[in-house]
Nucleic acid binder design. Structure first.
Length: 206
DNA sequence: CGAGTTTGACCCGCGC
DNA sequence: GCGCGGGTCAAACTCG
Protein backbone atom coordinates (compact mmCIF):
# COMPACT_ATOMS: atom_id res chain seq x y z
CA UNK A 1 0.00 0.00 0.00
CA UNK A 2 1.15 3.45 -0.64
CA UNK A 3 -0.35 6.76 0.08
CA UNK A 4 -2.22 6.82 -3.15
CA UNK A 5 -4.71 4.70 -1.28
CA UNK A 6 -6.53 7.14 0.83
CA UNK A 7 -6.09 5.94 4.39
CA UNK A 8 -8.73 8.16 5.79
CA UNK A 9 -11.90 9.86 4.77
CA UNK A 10 -10.76 12.66 6.99
CA UNK A 11 -7.85 13.41 4.77
CA UNK A 12 -8.89 13.22 1.17
CA UNK A 13 -5.71 14.74 -0.07
CA UNK A 14 -3.93 11.49 0.66
CA UNK A 15 -5.62 10.06 -2.33
CA UNK A 16 -3.71 12.38 -4.55
CA UNK A 17 -0.73 10.57 -5.98
CA UNK A 18 0.83 13.88 -6.71
CA UNK A 19 0.51 14.99 -3.15
CA UNK A 20 2.83 17.83 -2.40
CA UNK A 21 3.56 18.80 1.12
CA UNK A 22 2.22 22.27 1.24
CA UNK A 23 2.91 23.10 4.84
CA UNK A 24 4.76 26.16 5.75
CA UNK A 25 7.75 26.44 7.99
CA UNK A 26 5.76 26.46 11.18
CA UNK A 27 3.97 23.30 10.35
CA UNK A 28 5.40 20.17 8.86
CA UNK A 29 3.19 17.20 8.24
CA UNK A 30 5.49 14.41 9.23
CA UNK A 31 3.92 11.08 10.01
CA UNK A 32 0.60 9.51 9.53
CA UNK A 33 0.98 7.20 12.45
CA UNK A 34 -1.92 4.94 11.84
CA UNK A 35 -5.30 4.79 10.36
CA UNK A 36 -8.06 2.71 11.78
CA UNK A 37 -11.15 2.12 9.85
CA UNK A 38 -13.77 -0.29 11.05
CA UNK A 39 -14.59 -2.80 8.39
CA UNK A 40 -11.28 -2.28 6.74
CA UNK A 41 -8.75 -5.01 6.36
CA UNK A 42 -5.45 -3.28 6.10
CA UNK A 43 -3.57 -5.12 8.76
CA UNK A 44 -0.22 -4.84 7.15
CA UNK A 45 2.33 -2.41 8.27
CA UNK A 46 3.29 0.35 6.01
CA UNK A 47 6.83 1.41 5.84
CA UNK A 48 7.11 4.43 3.67
CA UNK A 49 10.50 5.93 3.50
CA UNK A 50 10.93 9.54 4.32
CA UNK A 51 11.49 10.42 0.71
CA UNK A 52 7.76 10.74 0.71
CA UNK A 53 6.44 14.01 2.07
CA UNK A 54 4.60 11.96 4.63
CA UNK A 55 5.75 8.84 6.31
CA UNK A 56 3.06 6.35 7.03
CA UNK A 57 4.26 4.23 9.84
CA UNK A 58 1.50 1.78 10.37
CA UNK A 59 -2.05 1.16 9.58
CA UNK A 60 -4.36 -1.26 11.27
CA UNK A 61 -7.90 -2.14 11.69
CA UNK A 62 -9.67 -2.62 14.90
CA UNK A 63 -13.02 -2.75 16.48
CA UNK A 64 -13.64 -2.94 20.13
CA UNK A 65 -16.21 -5.61 19.82
CA UNK A 66 -14.38 -8.33 21.69
CA UNK A 67 -14.07 -8.29 25.43
CA UNK A 68 -14.45 -4.70 26.31
CA UNK A 69 -11.40 -2.61 25.79
CA UNK A 70 -9.81 -3.32 22.53
CA UNK A 71 -6.09 -3.30 22.46
CA UNK A 72 -6.07 -3.80 18.78
CA UNK A 73 -3.70 -1.08 17.93
CA UNK A 74 -0.12 -1.97 17.94
CA UNK A 75 2.14 0.05 15.85
CA UNK A 76 5.36 -0.62 14.17
CA UNK A 77 6.35 2.92 14.74
CA UNK A 78 9.96 3.53 15.41
CA UNK A 79 8.81 5.81 18.17
CA UNK A 80 6.26 3.47 19.65
CA UNK A 81 3.54 5.98 20.23
CA UNK A 82 1.37 4.96 23.10
CA UNK A 83 -2.07 5.24 21.69
CA UNK A 84 -4.54 3.25 23.65
CA UNK A 85 -7.93 2.51 22.32
CA UNK A 86 -9.98 2.02 25.37
CA UNK A 87 -13.63 2.49 25.24
CA UNK A 88 -16.08 2.97 28.00
CA UNK A 89 -18.75 2.47 25.45
CA UNK A 90 -20.90 -0.19 27.01
CA UNK A 91 -21.60 1.90 30.03
CA UNK A 92 -24.49 3.73 28.47
CA UNK A 93 -25.53 1.03 26.11
CA UNK A 94 -23.39 2.38 23.38
CA UNK A 95 -21.70 0.04 21.04
CA UNK A 96 -18.06 -0.58 21.54
CA UNK A 97 -17.15 0.09 17.99
CA UNK A 98 -14.28 2.42 17.82
CA UNK A 99 -15.05 3.87 14.48
CA UNK A 100 -12.45 5.56 12.40
CA UNK A 101 -9.25 6.66 14.00
CA UNK A 102 -6.41 8.55 12.48
CA UNK A 103 -3.30 9.72 14.19
CA UNK A 104 -0.50 11.71 12.74
CA UNK A 105 2.53 13.52 13.92
CA UNK A 106 3.32 16.96 12.74
CA UNK A 107 6.07 19.38 13.39
CA UNK A 108 4.30 22.47 14.50
CA UNK A 109 4.87 25.49 16.63
CA UNK A 110 1.27 25.55 17.62
CA UNK A 111 -0.38 22.88 19.72
CA UNK A 112 -3.83 22.87 18.27
CA UNK A 113 -4.38 22.89 14.59
CA UNK A 114 -7.34 24.73 13.24
CA UNK A 115 -8.88 22.06 11.05
CA UNK A 116 -12.08 23.84 10.26
CA UNK A 117 -14.20 22.16 12.88
CA UNK A 118 -15.25 23.58 16.17
CA UNK A 119 -13.72 21.71 19.09
CA UNK A 120 -14.53 21.91 22.74
CA UNK A 121 -11.83 20.97 25.19
CA UNK A 122 -13.02 18.57 27.86
CA UNK A 123 -9.91 17.25 29.47
CA UNK A 124 -6.23 17.61 29.99
CA UNK A 125 -3.94 15.00 31.44
CA UNK A 126 -0.32 14.37 31.97
CA UNK A 127 0.57 10.99 30.54
CA UNK A 128 3.32 8.56 31.25
CA UNK A 129 6.52 8.89 29.25
CA UNK A 130 5.57 12.37 28.26
CA UNK A 131 6.30 15.46 30.27
CA UNK A 132 3.79 17.37 28.22
CA UNK A 133 0.08 17.38 28.83
CA UNK A 134 -2.37 15.62 26.58
CA UNK A 135 -5.44 17.60 25.67
CA UNK A 136 -8.82 16.10 24.85
CA UNK A 137 -11.32 17.71 22.52
CA UNK A 138 -14.81 16.87 21.35
CA UNK A 139 -16.43 18.21 18.25
CA UNK A 140 -18.85 20.79 19.53
CA UNK A 141 -21.28 20.23 16.72
CA UNK A 142 -24.51 18.85 18.11
CA UNK A 143 -24.78 15.14 17.56
CA UNK A 144 -21.20 14.74 16.39
CA UNK A 145 -19.17 12.44 18.60
CA UNK A 146 -15.79 12.91 17.00
CA UNK A 147 -12.98 13.36 19.47
CA UNK A 148 -9.40 14.29 19.12
CA UNK A 149 -6.36 14.13 21.33
CA UNK A 150 -3.50 16.51 21.01
CA UNK A 151 -0.15 16.09 22.69
CA UNK A 152 3.41 17.10 22.22
CA UNK A 153 5.76 14.30 21.34
CA UNK A 154 7.52 13.25 24.51
CA UNK A 155 10.79 12.75 22.71
CA UNK A 156 10.73 15.80 20.57
CA UNK A 157 8.51 18.61 21.70
CA UNK A 158 8.74 20.16 18.28
CA UNK A 159 6.27 17.54 17.14
CA UNK A 160 2.59 17.45 17.88
CA UNK A 161 0.70 14.17 17.85
CA UNK A 162 -2.92 14.55 16.90
CA UNK A 163 -5.36 11.66 17.04
CA UNK A 164 -8.86 11.83 15.60
CA UNK A 165 -11.48 9.37 16.80
CA UNK A 166 -14.47 8.95 14.58
CA UNK A 167 -15.74 10.63 11.49
CA UNK A 168 -17.72 13.82 11.46
CA UNK A 169 -21.37 13.35 10.61
CA UNK A 170 -21.60 16.88 9.38
CA UNK A 171 -19.69 19.14 7.11
CA UNK A 172 -17.02 21.48 8.15
CA UNK A 173 -18.45 24.93 8.78
CA UNK A 174 -16.31 26.10 5.93
CA UNK A 175 -16.97 23.18 3.63
CA UNK A 176 -18.00 25.03 0.54
CA UNK A 177 -15.38 27.67 0.78
CA UNK A 178 -12.57 25.21 1.11
CA UNK A 179 -13.82 22.94 -1.59
CA UNK A 180 -13.33 25.87 -3.83
CA UNK A 181 -9.95 26.41 -2.37
CA UNK A 182 -8.87 22.87 -3.11
CA UNK A 183 -10.06 23.09 -6.63
CA UNK A 184 -8.15 26.24 -7.15
CA UNK A 185 -5.12 25.06 -5.29
CA UNK A 186 -2.20 27.37 -5.71
CA UNK A 187 0.98 26.06 -4.21
CA UNK A 188 2.35 29.52 -3.57
CA UNK A 189 -0.63 30.42 -1.51
CA UNK A 190 -0.92 27.40 0.69
CA UNK A 191 -0.70 27.94 4.36
CA UNK A 192 -1.36 25.85 7.39
CA UNK A 193 -4.83 27.08 7.94
CA UNK A 194 -6.05 26.58 4.45
CA UNK A 195 -4.62 23.11 4.15
CA UNK A 196 -6.03 21.90 7.37
CA UNK A 197 -9.34 23.27 6.42
CA UNK A 198 -9.13 21.62 3.08
CA UNK A 199 -8.31 18.19 4.43
CA UNK A 200 -11.50 18.20 6.36
CA UNK A 201 -13.66 17.91 3.30
CA UNK A 202 -15.07 14.69 4.55
CA UNK A 203 -17.97 13.10 2.86
CA UNK A 204 -18.73 10.10 5.02
CA UNK A 205 -21.09 7.59 3.45
CA UNK A 206 -24.16 8.41 5.43
C1' DC B 1 -24.92 35.62 29.70
C1' DG B 2 -23.52 31.92 26.92
C1' DA B 3 -19.73 29.37 25.29
C1' DG B 4 -15.36 27.63 26.10
C1' DT B 5 -11.47 26.33 29.40
C1' DT B 6 -9.45 24.54 33.58
C1' DT B 7 -8.73 21.08 36.76
C1' DG B 8 -9.52 17.74 40.35
C1' DA B 9 -12.21 13.76 40.97
C1' DC B 10 -13.99 9.79 39.33
C1' DC B 11 -14.45 5.60 36.39
C1' DC B 12 -12.73 1.74 34.03
C1' DG B 13 -9.55 -1.62 31.99
C1' DC B 14 -5.31 -3.88 32.35
C1' DG B 15 -1.20 -5.92 34.29
C1' DC B 16 0.94 -7.82 38.17
C1' DG C 1 -7.50 -7.82 44.57
C1' DC C 2 -4.90 -3.80 44.00
C1' DG C 3 -2.50 -0.13 41.92
C1' DC C 4 -1.59 2.37 37.82
C1' DG C 5 -2.65 4.88 33.84
C1' DG C 6 -5.75 6.72 30.46
C1' DG C 7 -10.18 8.80 29.49
C1' DT C 8 -14.22 11.44 30.94
C1' DC C 9 -17.13 14.29 33.88
C1' DA C 10 -18.60 18.38 35.88
C1' DA C 11 -18.25 22.46 38.78
C1' DA C 12 -15.88 26.61 38.89
C1' DC C 13 -13.86 29.92 36.34
C1' DT C 14 -12.73 33.02 32.31
C1' DC C 15 -13.65 35.52 28.31
C1' DG C 16 -16.00 37.90 24.62
Amino acid sequence: MNISQNPSPNFPFFSDENFINPFMDNFDFTDLIFDVNEGGNNNGFIQEETSSPISIVSSETFTGESGGSGSGITTSSKKEPTFGCKSRGSKDGETKEMGHRVAFRTRSKIDVMDDGYKWRKYGKKSVKNNTNKRNYYKCSNEGCTVKKRVERDGEDAAYVITTYDGVHNHESPSHVYYNDMVLSYDHDNWNQHSLLQAIQQISPPY
